[in-house]
Design a protein around this nucleic acid. Structure first.
Length: 676
DNA sequence: GTTAGGG
DNA sequence: CCCTAAC
C-alpha cells in the first residue's frame, strides 16, 4: 500500500517527497518503507525522474535554445517538444512542481553512487521520450496531426529502446555517459556512437571521465544551477543506488531499493525488472491517466484503438485538470458579470457553460455533452431609477423587463467562439462542441423571435413584433417585440430629457402591490432549473403555450410625479368621466398610457389622497397634488351630469361660472401638457 | 370603442 | 395593471 501511495503521490502532482535526512525520520514517514515493491519503487523513481526531466526540458529549452536539439537520447525521430503556451497535460504541469526541493540533496548523494546510473538513465530517457511524446500527442492532436501514427512511432521507439537496453546495456551505458557529460544536446552523438553500438574499449576511461564530470557538474549545479539536467541524473542515481558510506545517512532509505537495484544491475535478470518497471510505469501512466493498454503487445495489437483511447483519455486528463481552473474562471466571470451588468450582445447569452466530462465521456461510442448554464447575461437593457428607489424595486424593474423580453418570444441560439452556429442539422461533434476546449467557447443566446428570418418566428405574434425588427446589439433599440420596443423606447427617452417632459422626476419605484411581481413571473418564458440537475438549465417555453396560456402582462410602469401632475390638471379641466379626452389631452404621445390606465391611476390617486401618508407606498406624491386630486374628485362628483357635450373651454367657462374654480382652468389653458 | 368598476 | 360588464 505504501508503494501505491507513493505512486499516487507522484501522480497527484509529482511532488517527490523530500527525503528525510535521517533514516528514522524516513522510517517514521514510511515513505520508502516497503522493500518488496521494487517495481513500483522503480516506477516511482522513474516517474519522479520523468518529472525532473521534463523540468529540465523546459528550463533548458530557454537556456539551450541556441544549441538546437536537446532531446534525450531516444532516437532520431523524437518528436519535437512544442511550446507550452497550449494546454499541457496535467502530468507535465504537475511534474514541474515540488521536485526541485530535494534534487540538491539527491545530487549530493549521487556523487557517491553513480555506477548504476545508466540503468535508470535508460528508463529516464524512455520516460522522457514517453512523456515528450505524450505532450506532443496532445499538442499535435489539437493541431490536427495524425496522432495515431505518432503513437505507433512512439511505441516503436519504446520497443526499440527496450531491446537496446536489454541487448546492449554496455553500449547504452556509454551513451548515457556521454549524455551525462554533455547534456541532452549530445544525444545525437550518443545515438550515433554509443547507442548505436560503439566499441567499449575505453570504458574505464569513460567512467573516470564520467565521475570527474559528475563532480564538476555537481559544483556547477550547486553554484548556478546551470545544469539541472545533472541534478536530475544524479537524483536518479541516488534513488537506484545505495552505496555504503553514504554520508548523508540515507542508506536506510536506499536499502529499500536495494532489491530493485540489485535486480536491475544483473544482466540476466536485468530485463525482467526493467520490463516490469517499464510496464509498471506505462501501466500507471496509462491506468492513472490514460487507462489504456498496459503493455506493448496490447498496443501493437490495436494501435488504432489505442490511439483513439489515448486521445480520449488524454482529453479526459485535460478536462479533469481544466475543470478546477474552470471553476475559478467561472467564478471570476460571474463576478465580472455582476459588475459589468450591461453588455452589448444583443441578446441573452449564457456566459458560462460547463459540462461534466467524466460522466458524459464514459462511453466513447456515444458520448454525451452536458451543459449547464450558470449565468445569464442580459444585454442592452437600460434602467433609470431614482436614487431613492429600493433594491427591491430595482430588482422588480429588471425582472419585469427581462421577463417581458423573454415572454416576447425568444429562440435559443448557439454561439461557438462568438460565431453563431446556424446549421441546426449539424451534430455537436461536427460542430466541435463535444470537447472541453470548445465548451469554454460555447455560449447560448436567446434570440428575439423578431430577429429570426424564419417566418415561423412570427407566427401567432402580432405583426408589430415583426415590424420592430432591428439589428441585435443596437444600443438604442434592442428589439424583442413591440412591447419591449415600447419599454426600451421609453427607457431610452428617459435618458434623454429633451424628449420627455417627465424626464427628471421619473420613478421606477413600485408604489403598489408587490404581489403583482410574483404573479407576473408565473408564466414567463424561461424556467430556471436548479443547478443541481444535469439537464440544460434554461428551458424556453414555446411561444404558442406562452401566448395562449398566459397573455403577456404589460410592464409595470408607475406613474411619475410629472405624470400625476399632468393627469390631475387634465382631470381638473375635463372631469372624471372623459378619460379618452384626458388621454388625448395630456398623454397623447405616451403610448403606454391608455385611457384605462389614466382612469385607474386617478382611482388610485383618490384612494391615496384619502389614506394617511404612512400607508402610502411608492414614490411620494406631493401633498399639494393629492389635495388637488381630492378637490377635483369632489367637484366632478358633484358636476358629473352637467358636462356632457361641451368642449373643454365651454365646460371650463361653465364650471368657472358655476363654481369657484377658475384658477384651475387658467392653469390648464396656459400650460397644456405635451407627452411623448 | 369607451366607461366604470371589481380584482 | 387586468378584466369585463355595460353602454
Amino acid at each position: 500500500m505504501v508503494s501505491k501511495k507513493r505512486i499516487d503521490y507522484g501522480f497527484n502532482g509529482f511532488r517527490v517527497p523530500v527525503i528525510p535526512k535521517g533514516p528514522r525520520s524516513a522510517r517514521r514517514r514510511g515513505v520508502f518503507k516497503k522493500a518488496n515493491q521494487d517495481d513500483e519503487a522503480c516506477a516511482f523513481e522513474l516517474l519522479a525522474l520523468a518529472g525532473m526531466l521534463l523540468q529540465e526540458s523546459e528550463s533548458s529549452a530557454s537556456s539551450n535554445a541556441s544549441e538546437g536539439n536537446h532531446q534525450p537520447a531516444f532516437g532520431q525521430g523524437v518528436i519535437e517538444q512544442e511550446k507550452h503556451d497550449e494546454v499541457k497535460p496535467i502530468i507535465t504541469d504537475n511534474i514541474l512542481r515540488g521536485s526541485c526541493g530535494e534534487s540538491q540533496f539527491r545530487t549530493e548523494v549521487a556523487m557517491q553512487n553513480c555506477t548504476q546510473k545508466s540503468v535508470l538513465d535508460a528508463n529516464a530517457d524512455c520516460l522522457q521520450g514517453c512523456i515528450s511524446a505524450n505532450n506532443n500527442f496532445d499538442c499535435r492532436r489539437k493541431a490536427g496531426a495524425d496522432v495515431k501514427s505518432e503513437i505507433c512511432e512512439w511505441d516503436n521507439k519504446f520497443q526499440h529502446y527496450s531491446n537496446r537496453l536489454v541487448e546492449a546495456p554496455e553500449n547504452f551505458r556509454e551513451s548515457c555517459d556521454v549524455n551525462v557529460n554533455n547534456g541532452f544536446r549530445q544525444e545525437k552523438e550518443a545515438n550515433s556512437s554509443g547507442f548505436q553500438g560503439s566499441n567499449s574499449a575505453d570504458k574505464s576511461s569513460t567512467k573516470n571521465q564520467l565521475e570527474l564530470n559528475m563532480s564538476r557538474t555537481l559544483i556547477d549545479s550547486n553554484s548556478n544551477a546551470k545544469s539541472p539536467l545533472y541534478r536530475k541524473y544524479f537524483s536518479i542515481a541516488s534513488y537506484s543506488k545505495h552505496g555504503n558510506g553514504n554520508k548523508l545517512g540515507v542508506r536506510d532509505d536506499d536499502e529499500k531499493f536495494l532489491r530493485c537495484s540489485k535486480v536491475c544491475t544483473k544482466s540476466k535478470t536485468f530485463r525482467s525488472p526493467q520490463r516490469i518497471a517499464h510496464r509498471r510505469i506505462r501501466k500507471h501512466l496509462f491506468s492513472k491517466h490514460w487507462k489504456v493498454a498496459p503493455n506493448l503487445k496490447d498496443c501493437e495489437l490495436s494501435r488504432s484503438d489505442m490511439g483513439a483511447q489515448l486521445l480520449y483519455r488524454k482529453r479526459k486528463i485535460c478536462q479533469s485538470f481544466e475543470r478546477s481552473e474552470h471553476k475559478i474562471r467561472v467564478k471570476r466571470r460571474k463576478f465580472f458579470d455582476r459588475v459589468s451588468g450591461v453588455t452589448s450582445d444583443g441578446g441573452f447569452s449564457s456566459e458560462s457553460v460547463s459540462n461534466s466530462p467524466e460522466k458524459g465521456m464514459d462511453n466513447p461510442k456515444d458520448p454525451h455533452v452536458k451543459f449547464s448554464i450558470k449565468t445569464i447575461r442580459i444585454p442592452e437593457l437600460y434602467f433609470e431609477v431614482p436614487e431613492t428607489a429600493t433594491i427591491g424595486s430595482l430588482k422588480s424593474t429588471i425582472m419585469e423587463t427581462v421577463m417581458t423580453i423573454l415572454g416576447g418570444g425568444a429562440h435559443v441560439g448557439v454561439l461557438l467562439q462568438g460565431k453563431k452556429v446556424r446549421d441546426d442539422n449539424r451534430t455537436l461533434v461536427q460542430t466541435g462542441i463535444s470537447c472541453k476546449e470548445s465548451l469554454d467557447n460555447l455560449s447560448f443566446e436567446l434570440e428575439p423571435s423578431s430577429l429570426l428570418d424564419s417566418a415561423a418566428a412570427c407566427v401567432g405574434d402580432p405583426p408589430s413584433q415583426c415590424e420592430t425588427s432591428q439589428p441585435a446589439g443596437s444600443p438604442e433599440t434592442p428589439v424583442i417585440d413591440s412591447e419591449i420596443t415600447d419599454t426600451l423606447h421609453e427607457s431610452s427617452l428617459l435618458t434623454n430629457p429633451g424628449n420627455l417632459v417627465e424626464s427628471n422626476h421619473d420613478s421606477m419605484t413600485s408604489p403598489t402591490d408587490p404581489t403583482v411581481d410574483k404573479e407576473s413571473l408565473d408564466c414567463r418564458a424561461l424556467v430556471v432549473v436548479p443547478a443541481s440537475t444535469d439537464a440544460l438549465a434554461v428551458v424556453p417555453f414555446s411561444q404558442k403555450s406562452k401566448r395562449s396560456e398566459c397573455a403577456q402582462r404589460r410592464t409595470r410602469r408607475p406613474f411619475s410625479v410629472t405624470e400625476v401632475e399632468a393627469l390631475v390638471r387634465a382631470v381638473e379641466e375635463l372631469g372624471t368621466g372623459r378619460w379618452r379626452d384626458v388621454k388625448f389631452r395630456a398623454f397623447e404621445n405616451a403610448e403606454h398610457r391608455t385611457y384605462v390606465d389614466l382612469k385607474d391611476k386617478w382611482k388610485t390617486l383618490v384612494h391615496t389622497a384619502k389614506i394617511s401618508p404612512q400607508q402610502r407606498r411608492g414614490e411620494p406624491v406631493p401633498q399639494e397634488l393629492l389635495d388637488r386630486v381630492l378637490a377635483a374628485h369632489a367637484y366632478w362628483s358633484q358636476h358629473q351630469a352637467k358636462q356632457h357635450g361641451g368642449k373643454t373651454l365651454k365646460i371650463t367657462e361653465t364650471s368657472s361660472a358655476e363654481t369657484e374654480k377658475p384658477s384651475i382652468e387658467a392653469v390648464v389653458q396656459s400650460q397644456p401638457l405635451v407627452m411623448l
